[in-house]
Design a protein around this nucleic acid. Sequence first.
DNA 1: CGAGATTCATGTGAAGTATACCTTTAGGCTTAA
DNA 2: AAGCCTAAAGGTATACTTCACATGAATCTCGTA
Length: 407
Amino acid sequence: MAAKLDKIFDSFDENNIFKDKSILQTAYKPEDIPHRDEQIKQIASILAPVLRGEKTSNLFLYGKTGTGKTLSISYVRGELLKRAKKSPENNIEIKYLNCKLKKVADTEYRILAELIKKFGGSVPETGLPTQAVYSKFVDMIDSKKQLVVLILDEIDHTVKKISSDFLYNLTRLNSELSQTQICVVGISNNLTFLEELDPRVRSSLSEEEIVFPPYNALQLQEILNTRSEKAFKKGVIDEGVIAKCAAFAAREHGDARRALDLLRVAGELSERDGNKKILLKHIDEANNKIERDKILDIVSTEPKQFQFVLYSIIKLIEQRQREKNKDSIFTGDVYNLYQKICERNKCEVLTQRRVSDIIQEFDMLGVINVKVISKGRGGRMREIKLAIGSKIVQKVKEIIEDTLDYM
DNA sequence: CGAGATTCATGTGAAGTATACCTTTAGGCTTAA
DNA sequence: AAGCCTAAAGGTATACTTCACATGAATCTCGTA
């Protein structure tokens, strides 16, 4: 047995087409970030005053996903911290927080709790008044003279779920602080986010704005090339692979992260096949796999009730297809089936009101597409469509059916 | 025939409830002088 | 008497429910041409 395994491990080793896979992972921070010089320079010059211990303007970055926002800001953050170490007379804290992480930072309370954690404190998950958490945060950062820069990633998400009051409070925090000064760097994927924002918040949050344009296919290729040189062994990439990756990602509004993921997953797939080269077909496979994994992850971490709702939607849509019935499905249909499923599984039935919200959340997650339509006298309801491919739907179904007693 | 009223089925906001969890406080017990 | 532990009291966030009003276009109504 051991010998057999050795063989597997050996061949795995031989076929290893990666030199350093971490280079393609999203956590990887390259030393230089191509095509973002201008933005990085701007960020740096806006944030530079912190090195002299002065408060800077609040800054707002926006651009679509994978355009290097997070990367650029964390690069500048790193450089600033490096410099700050040399002159320790100024206390500088630059904290990064992604506000989108579900169940971690999707309410005002949890964001504050998360920030406190970043500053070395701890807060219970629930039970405290938000105001108490708020003042604990103020106490913590105001305990000594320092300059605090808060980088809040994906705040558009936050404002949708909470309200802009939170940001308003945050930007006005300085008046409550005696020793410490605070500046906020907001990052948003949503280009129209600023326009929807409360004007009070808007003016104070976006004293400076920087736009991150999407990468074009050529720039994506360049990025992929430089990274793949370090990440892969020589000659493992088949001709046209990079170009195809770039093309795929360019179609997705120039998302560099997507492109890198594609390349990495394609590499993994090819490796698993025992191939010595990454071929074009691996890109297609990778594209499917990424999509699938993302959705499956969402679905499997969702609570049971959510899964039932999704299951109802899937079932109904399948039924419509079988019957060649062109009608779309609506909230009421979903709720009826959902009720039955719950009863058969001896599970509590949520109200329609709640299910309505759940459907909306699935829309936000990108699992389904939803449109509120009015059918005149027929009433007003949501038209629901699946936003995922049929192969993935099957997988999703399997996952949910595992948790169901009755099919 | 067309403008305005009606209607349907649900969207949506606000307020209330249940649950799980937190802090505070008061009482009881232990301990050391 | 001081210190420590425990349990009850009082309070909150979150997920969900209940109540009530808002929507918006197909359909109806009715006055008018």
